[in-house]
Design a protein around this nucleic acid. Structure first.
Lengths: 252, 252
DNA sequence: TCCTGTGAACCTCTTCACAGCC
DNA sequence: GGCTGTGAAGAGGTTCACAGGA
């Protein structure tokens, strides 16, 4: 950690900058964070999962404030805009470092940079898509991904009547080419929008191809080996949750 | 409650069937559930939010088991298929009633019916869509909704070059017609797939039109009055979460 | 004054472990 | 044997309340 000694200097003793979190450096495994006394501790297993989820929302909100030319924002204002308490915002951010300025709040631009660094979206991620049906086509045309640091670089489909055809700037590739493309384009993330039946098979092939994280839109639960990240979005489940909430307004 | 007296009979004293949860009957507000002693208690404010989310996953999994012609399933098997413990499954289901059979497990078909009833998807919900862009078109063509009890009945867009055109079986309507259509078609749920800028305006108009639940796909946080249900799906946020999980495999 | 960061208290959710039933 | 439902224990997350800095 090239700058961790700064943390021993009295004036900056409490500051552990996000830029010093080096998840990919040194031995793989737990990231380490500098403590005020200069020692290192693995800190990231102490982070509440919900805090990570909210981090993305903070970033989105901060970007909105930035578009409105706001320079600083307090935890209260950031929280109100998301329906959270000020304490929640401060606790969440404090998991990752000390980003705030007492009496002032958080500097919007600075915090955006730090949150992007924590989330890993300060660098571009190459992403592939499997499934060129309705949902897949919508995903392939989704503009926001680029602004958020994600670049779609390849599209695959099992259906041989689709492979070879164009979809936007992409030629739909057969699944068997996945391994090669993943290596060539250094793809680490994949989105799958295929029928439920084929989902697990596709997931297995993605893992085999070397993908590290999968976003599953198929309406079925799939298994991945440990250390492969998995997120799922089931559109019907979302509506079901709404249905319940409408029936029981006090619970949802 | 037409059959609640059964609960007072010794042999069925412990059984409080989901079919007796009558959220929309009697005075609106807290649902009531029959207790063994025959009295009623509002029970639904004691339900963990995560349990409601998992309920949809249980249902999806049960439907998969049903397709495989499974008749019964244990909490252990249901949990394993979703990466949950057996105790978790039992506790979750026990929030809503006693559906299991000691020594046997849960009868698949029976439990599907009860979970659908709890979620409210044993009856069809009419749904509208705002936004006929890429994502909106994909949502309008999404087949799974129908099988899950949701029926898309109208599509709206603010863009006057789109209104009047056909999208599948629908004619894209101008937003000003929303109030009328909501009443005529008895629509209670809405999905919005519009640009971030227009999202809050559309939400306000949906609430004004009488919609009770909103599924927001716009990449921005929107506000609704209390007692209007709101769920949000932000595709970029999902990828961001993956990005973090890939960087810090032990946390996600 | 306004604001952050944080221990402590509080609350919610999950897991354990076992009684009771098939 | 297998299985559910559930009180109790434990883990995890949120809110409170305040010290300390700008």
């Amino acid at each position: 950690m090239e700058s961790s000694k700064l943390d021993q200097a009295p004036s900056t003793a409490k500051r552990s900058k996000a830029s010093e979190l080096k998840p990919t450096s040194g031995t793989p495994g737990l990231p380490e964070i500098a403590r005020p006394d200069g020692t290192l501790e693995p800190r990231f297993n102490a982070i509440p999962h919900p805090a990570v989820r909210r981090l993305s929302l903070y970033l989105r909100q901060l970007e909105t404030f930035q578009r409105k030319a706001r320079r600083t924002i307090s935890s209260r204002q950031l929280g109100e805009s998301l329906g959270l308490t000020d304490a929640q915002v401060r606790k969440d951010l404090a998991c990752f470092g000390q980003f705030g300025h007492p009496g002032i709040g958080y500097r919007v631009e600075e915090l955006i940079g730090q949150v992007r660094h924590i989330l890993g979206t300060d660098k571009v991620w190459n992403v592939l898509l499997v499934g060129a049906g309705n949902l897949g086509r919508a995903l392939s045309a989704y503009k926001e991904f680029n602004a958020k640091g994600f670049r779609l670089v390849a599209i695959f489909d099992a259906d041989s009547t689709k492979t070879g055809r164009k979809l936007g700037p992409f030629t739909i590739q057969p699944i068997r080419e996945m391994g090669e493309t993943v290596k060539k384009e250094q793809i680490r993330l994949a989105m799958i929008a295929v029928p439920a039946d084929s989902a697990q098979g596709v997931v297995d092939q993605l893992v085999e191809a070397g993908v590290k994280g999968i976003l599953n839109f198929a309406p079925i639960s799939v298994k991945v080996p440990p250390h492969i990240a998995l997120n799922a979005v089931d559109l019907s489940v979302q509506l079901e949750q709404l249905s319940f909430q409408v029936n029981f307004p006090t619970v949802g």
